[in-house]
Design a protein around this nucleic acid. Sequence first.
DNA 1: CCGCATCCAACAAGATACTG
DNA 2: CAGTATCTTGTTGGATGCGG
Lengths: 212, 212
Amino acid sequence: MRSYGQYCSIARALDIVGDRWTLLVVRELMLQGPCRFTDLKKGLPGVAANLLSARLKELEAAGLLTREDAPPPVATALYALTEDGRALEPVLRALGLWGLRFMTEERPDDSFRARWLAYAPAWFTTDADPGAPPAVIQVVASGEPAVIEVRDGRIHSRTGRVTDPDLLLEGPPRAVLGLLTGVIDLELAQGLGLSVRGRRELLARLRPVPRD
Amino acid sequence: MRSYGQYCSIARALDIVGDRWTLLVVRELMLQGPCRFTDLKKGLPGVAANLLSARLKELEAAGLLTREDAPPPVATALYALTEDGRALEPVLRALGLWGLRFMTEERPDDSFRARWLAYAPAWFTTDADPGAPPAVIQVVASGEPAVIEVRDGRIHSRTGRVTDPDLLLEGPPRAVLGLLTGVIDLELAQGLGLSVRGRRELLARLRPVPRD
DNA sequence: CCGCATCCAACAAGATACTG
DNA sequence: CAGTATCTTGTTGGATGCGG
């Protein structure tokens, strides 16, 4: 990208991560951890291979990620964020929190990955009842499964399944995400196609962070 | 900008503010308050008039700013952020804090405005001695003046001059900014061309916020 | 398959000139 | 002053190819 040529830390940050796709590449590496070219491509539907390749080179040159040949079991290059790259987490958090306000708008053609939903409760909610015992919520949105754990007064999340969750939420991403982030209530979520099984009072423990 | 087409709040945020120049337009409106087309253009050296015009239209359509015909004394259109637009402040803060790490690199051709320096201590430092009496620092970087006030345990800033400051810092932007944000020490800043007059012990009150 | 490199049509950005 | 019109250039997305 062409530099803005301004002595301003916002402009200099954008000189590096302001290009199209760049912050989404960082998002994928932040959410997935070190991964291969193909994993990144799967997590970035719509990106052209040459462009992803270019972005990875730029990010490596800027010192935000490293490219390393993984040991035999993988036998291919792995991309991983450096400390400077991981330091972008507050940027992604701030952007993601601000962007929540647009998640109620329906856009049927949007692609979806469970990872994109899983980070939301972890980043944008806190445990309203830290003293209560741990609990596990299984989420399935658009067929993709994720697990939300409420434990030690914190919210953790990951993709995948768990046996015997305390609560099971299944439905379209809009309903699941809206409910988990407190944007819509249970009744409305069910109206959007959400099915609920288990201890629904657990939902009250997910307290949205203040939006400022 | 073409949408990323992903149901992810980060991607949706970038659908709206991910275009080139867009976040810098928001920065100017955030730092300057409501202003005219020309004021924006002056605060965005390098932007083409047609592009600025396009961005303003897009931001208005997205509900991030309003365009209003100002009353007689100004007699021209004023652009102002809406609440959704102002809600981007945490994004700009996070980006600006992350970008500080690149501000030590010298790029002689970068343009500079006092406003771009003034927000840094206000956003990225706190008053290490909240009980101490108020103090005023006059800063002049690259000929552009700004005022930093340390008061009520907080750091405020604005462009302009004040009579009889407690401390006067004058020098190239890199020296002034580095010193104010705690990236470099006084000795190094003086090596970079900073001149200091007054109560230099005031500098100890500017405590950098943790970088995570 | 993985990790790109190459090619091309469509689009966005930058510079400059111009108008109400 | 506050933009618009036009032109040129650069970037992107998408398809395809290709060695390891």
